[in-house]
Design a protein around this nucleic acid. Sequence first.
DNA 1: GCCAACGTTGGC
DNA 2: GCCAACGTTGGC
Length: 161
Amino acid sequence: MAGGRQYWLMKSEPEAFSIDDLARSPKKTTSWDGVRNYQARNFMRTMRVGDEVLFYHSNADPPSVVGIAEVVKSAYPDATQFDRLDTHYDPDSDPDQPRWVMVDIRFVRKFMAPMSLDLLRGQVGLKGMELLRKGSRLSVQPVRAEEWNEILRLERTQADR
DNA sequence: GCCAACGTTGGC
DNA sequence: GCCAACGTTGGC
């Protein structure tokens, strides 16, 4: 796996920040700030430029994977942790040893049709996917190459209808 | 170190 | 709006 491209899934509530918001952002790029979960942070620390990301809309109707982004900047300190006025302010984070990081991601493309949780659950090849696990809340999660390929294959069959 | 209480996430 | 499934906090 060394040097290989990795795949990820990142969740966002479309009301807060949608894939369309990403597509409209300057350079189609945004800083993925505000992550305050250690497991998610640890995954972000291992992200490399060129890694690919499934963009997922949570708390959406229906909740769906809606497109693809790519990592364009690896982990660096999340500025919002030091901003008292920000909702993600963390008074316990030491500026000399920032607790939270963010990465930059860039819009790649939006799927022709959103791929809903229901649709994904119907795929045998996605049985073990973290996203589909009951109670799964991880907002940044790894995606296996087989899962990534299965989802892109699914996308093509959806587009052919 | 245990664990109850609490806060959050996110599907439904 | 409900609530299951978490993760975190803090008393002990």
